[in-house]
Write a protein that binds this DNA or RNA. Structure first.
Length: 286
DNA sequence: AATTACGACAACCGCCTCTCA
DNA sequence: TTGAGAGGCGGTTGTCGTAAT
């Protein structure tokens, strides 16, 4: 009777993720992107977690270039405007905000924006084109979107096409990061196969526009990570035929990835600063 | 200093949709 | 065409930190 659970709740760990679990998951996904599905990931990676939990952890917390907190006025306006148009389609709204997740947007709405929205809008329901907010939410919606909305897509695309200092700064940071990784790679080997790692970095952020957030539709047999996220920082040759060997490999990954985490943190923090600058600049340009 | 209230956010739950055999 | 499996998504809950009393 009923739906079978996606995992055995009695045998999986629940609650907050530890740093070790994060390291295992992050290194596994970056190392074996496009090599399986979320349900089998925990077993292959040696994690005692539900596959869905792994997916959520990756999408909402571990993905590179994610930003947490510090929502700007422009982002507030976008969220308020889109909510007025489409309701609680958080994934759609998040897709318009680079580096934000639907969970982040949803939490931000529930804790901050909702009150503001309630104070500034009329109680009449919105004209949502037949797609009203989900049933349980009785929040009144505005008949018209709030003013002073910035089109972030336009703004960011303008910045992306720009050859100015910000792009150069982005490329500089990226080159610096890859240089550090190259140094490391000369003394490292693939934890799974023992092969020397070949550095095959993704294109620099300044030259390949970032994916549009969490709205990607992935194949059922691949990790649904963003385009920019799918390329592992390191690859072993013959990646498609790599076999995994459970927890021992996973712990080897964790050890091998310990230094990688510091570079990823560097990358994320650099992105944070860069994106904040880009948003500010885009607002001025508009 | 101790307790309570509240905010922020990570994580979970369960339904819906999509894909593929 | 259909059913099972997997992913996507929105709503809700749990936990922790901090401000207020």
């Amino acid at each position: 009777m009923g739906r079978s659970p996606c995992c055995d709740k009695a045998s999986v760990k629940r609650g907050p993720w530890s740093r070790e679990e994060d390291a295992v998951l992050r290194s596994f996904i970056q190392r074996f992107a496009n090599a399986g599905n979320w349900i089998t990931l925990p077993q292959k990676a040696g994690l005692r977690r539900c596959g869905k939990s792994c997916r959520l952890r990756w999408l909402n917390y571990l993905r590179p270039a994610l930003r947490h907190g510090g929502f700007t006025e422009e982002e507030d306006s976008i969220i308020l405007s889109l909510y007025g148009e489409i309701g609680s389609k958080w994934s759609v709204i998040a897709a318009k905000l680079r580096g934000r997740t639907d969970n982040d947007v949803k939490n931000y709405w529930n804790t901050k924006l909702k009150k503001r929205y309630m104070l500034t809008t009329a109680p009449s329901p919105p004209a949502t084109g037949g797609d009203s907010p989900s049933g349980g939410d009785q929040t009144p919606l505005p008949a018209t979107p709030p003013p002073a909305v910035v089109n972030l897509d336009t703004a960011l695309s303008t910045v992306d096409e720009d050859d100015g200092d910000l792009t150069h700064e982005s490329e500089r940071l990226y080159a610096e990061l890859m240089g550090l990784i190259d140094q490391k790679s000369t003394t490292s080997s693939c934890p799974s196969t023992g092969e020397s790692m070949s550095s095959s970095p993704p294109p620099p952020p300044g030259t390949s526009p970032a994916a549009t957030g969490s709205a990607g539709s992935a194949s059922s047999t691949t990790w649904p990570v963003d385009v920019d996220d799918t390329t592992p920082l390191y690859e072993c040759s013959g990646r498609s035929s790599v076999e995994l060997h459970g927890a021992s490999d996973a712990h080897a990954f964790a050890a091998a990835a310990s230094w990688l985490d510091s570079f990823q943190d560097l990358l994320a923090s650099s992105y944070d600063e860069l994106i904040a600058l880009q948003l500010a600049r885009a607002a001025v340009m508009l």
